[in-house]
Simulated assay, not measured.
Amino acid sequence: MPRKDILEGVEKFVHPYRVTSGKGFRLKDFDPGDTGGLKMDKHAAAELLARGSEWLAMEQDMLYAQDRWSLLLIFQAMDAAGKDGTIKHVMARVNPQGCEVHSFKQPSAEELAHDFLWRYAKRAPARGRIGIFNRSYYEEVLVVRVHQELLKLQKLPPEHVGKNIWDERLADIAHLEDYLSRQGVIVLKFFLNLSKKEQKKRFMKRLDDKDRNWKFSASDVRERRYWDDYQSAFEEAIRATATPRAPWHVVPADNKWFSRLVVASAIVEAVERLDLAYPKVDAAMKKELAAARVELEAEP
């Protein structure tokens, strides 16, 4: 399919939810139940997603061979928004040798002994590879902001824990992403925008289904008490760090089939704009290939 047709085909899934400037951004302007006016059954949505995943797999091969660019996909969301499932389905056909998923849990003693970006920065993807952060350094201005007692564990000098610490951390994050983008890292950020009502529904399903009980934690319910605080923190984070080089995508997450299409489309569009191609073989290499052919053909 021609590049122009690919871009025109996916932009309707991407542009309404992309945020490249935080000025005037309000989370309430984005509907978690939005489906872009599409009426599509799960089977049709799965077929469309599969085509996108297959295309991404082909592009990944060129990304790896060209060895110039890398891709960093960051996923943030409230519990039960579908991060794991989205990553699984969108990246289903990608070669695992060229893709790494990092799921950041509570920091270790070693990680707490370093600056707040250290454990994340060292996991940035190498050239030619796709890196996925299932939660990321944004947790440092989300969960740590909501539960500020966690700051004590980070052993910061008292004079550096002031009223501007969150603005300062957001500025540091924005600078890091700008730096990465200038090194050939394509940074795409996804906030899976789940409604509180839909989260409750999914929690209840986990409680009702014995095979899903393992996915439920009592702490999930406790965190719901801080819903408004988290929404405010997400809004501030997006407002401070949305840029053309490192855009946010506020993805409607109440309908999993649609959220996966939006994520896949955003990745397809970004990679397609790189105009990837396999490295061209120069005259010297062609000569080596010809010699190798002669040697192989001469074998008994």
Rank of each mutant, 00 (worst) to 15 (best):
I165H: 03
I186S: 02
A113T: 02
N164S: 10
D61N: 07
G128Y: 05
M62R: 15
L170E: 02
W118P: 01
E168H: 10
D209Q: 02
I186A: 07
G36P: 04
I74D: 02
R212H: 11
Q231M: 11
N213I: 08
K210A: 15
A109L: 13
K28V: 10
K28I: 08
V14L: 07
S70W: 05
A291E: 14
Q76E: 15
A253V: 05
V187M: 05
K23T: 11
E159Y: 06
D84W: 05
V144N: 06
V146R: 12
P2L: 11
A80R: 00
P300S: 11
A233R: 07
E47L: 12
W248S: 01
A218T: 08
K105F: 11
V221Q: 14
D115Q: 05
A44T: 15
M285A: 13
E297C: 08
V161D: 06
V146P: 07
S195I: 00
R239G: 13
G85D: 08
P32W: 00
I130V: 15
Y17L: 02
R239T: 14
G162R: 10
L151I: 09
R119S: 09
L151V: 07
A113P: 09
M78R: 03
L192I: 01
A237V: 02
A65R: 13
L112W: 11
I74N: 03
F216C: 01
I6N: 00
L27S: 03
A126R: 15
V143W: 03
E236N: 13
I130K: 00
A277L: 08
W55H: 06
W166R: 07
L112I: 09
E59L: 13
G131M: 08
G33E: 10
L296N: 12
P2C: 09
W166T: 04
L192R: 01
G128E: 06
E11G: 02
